[in-house]
Computed example of a mutant assay.
Amino acid sequence: MLRVHSYESLGTFDGPGLRLVVFLQGCNYRCLYCANPDTIDLKGESQKTDIEEIVRLAVNEKPFFGKKGGVTFSGGEPTVQAKDLIPLVKRLKEQGIHVCLDSNGAVWNKYVEELLGMVDLVLLDIKQFNPERHKILTERSNEQTLKTAKWLEENNRPFWLRYVLVQGYSAFEEDITAMCEHLKDYKMIQRVEILPYHTLGVHKYESMNKEYKLKDVKENSPEQLEDARKIFSRYFSVVTVN
């Protein structure tokens, strides 16, 4: 059984092609800009769901996946439920369905390692390369995330690098450049995705009686996004702005 928060059918932003996105409950990070604060708590308002129900949903949507699409597990942080996710991924692979894992890479145990060895693609969210600024942004260390990136590289597991551009927090040229220098020789990075900062989840904070701490942070201008794209493009051949 998995704790599922919600689903998105035929999503286009979380991996290649059209995808069934399964948002799992529970997260180990406390990102200041989190758009899904209702997924953080390990229980929340989620539903315990039998894995066969998710397999059924995926198989029903399989005709729309084409050659590139499939299922993406997001959250929350899906590796929080890695042990229970493993048998589901096995079932999906038996059905010939492509599986993506959208992860911050900061949870590590034998179940996570097994899971990363099974999925077809990891969408690795590196929130900040600078350790001090990362802690301000997420209240957590980025040490394990960088170790996970190294593990993916050493074990020939393809991944996309995702980076949310937040002015005053992660949009520093020196930090982006340092991260690119650190990762520039990684052959398993297939794509870099720059994710613009947005405030679409602010209403959730209001409904939960929580303070949204970045209310004074403005969304990225086209120029700011283009500047970031140029930096990443010096190091990586495929860079997109989502």
Rank of each mutant, 00 (worst) to 15 (best):
E193R: 12
W160F: 04
E219C: 07
E113T: 08
E8Q: 14
T12V: 11
V59F: 05
G66D: 08
E223D: 12
L88T: 01
M188Y: 00
R229W: 06
L115H: 08
L18T: 15
S141H: 10
V99D: 04
R191V: 15
G69R: 06
S9G: 14
H5G: 10
D125N: 08
E153T: 13
L57D: 07
H198D: 04
L183T: 12
G66A: 13
N104F: 06
K215I: 14
S103I: 00
E8D: 11
R19L: 08
C180L: 03
L57K: 13
L32M: 14
F73L: 12
S103P: 07
G105V: 00
Y197T: 05
Q81P: 11
G66P: 05
A149Y: 01
L152F: 07
I231T: 09
D41N: 10
E114N: 03
M208W: 04
V55P: 11
R56Q: 15
W151R: 08
T199V: 12
Q95K: 15
L152I: 15
E8M: 14
K187R: 11
L101Y: 09
I231N: 10
T148G: 15
P158E: 03
F172G: 02
I176L: 11
K213L: 15
L92Q: 03
L225G: 12
R19W: 10
D125P: 02
R91Y: 06
I194G: 01
D102I: 00
F13A: 12
Y205E: 06
E211W: 00
C34Q: 03
V166W: 03
W151H: 09
K67S: 07
M179I: 02
K184S: 09
S9I: 14
V119W: 00
Y212P: 00
K213T: 06
E52H: 09
C34S: 05
V55K: 13
G11N: 12
F159Q: 01
G201M: 06
Q167V: 01
L92I: 14
I51Y: 02
E206V: 06
V59H: 07
E8R: 12
G66Q: 09
K230S: 07
Q167D: 08
Q25N: 12
R30H: 13
C100P: 01
A35Q: 13
Q25L: 15
P78E: 10
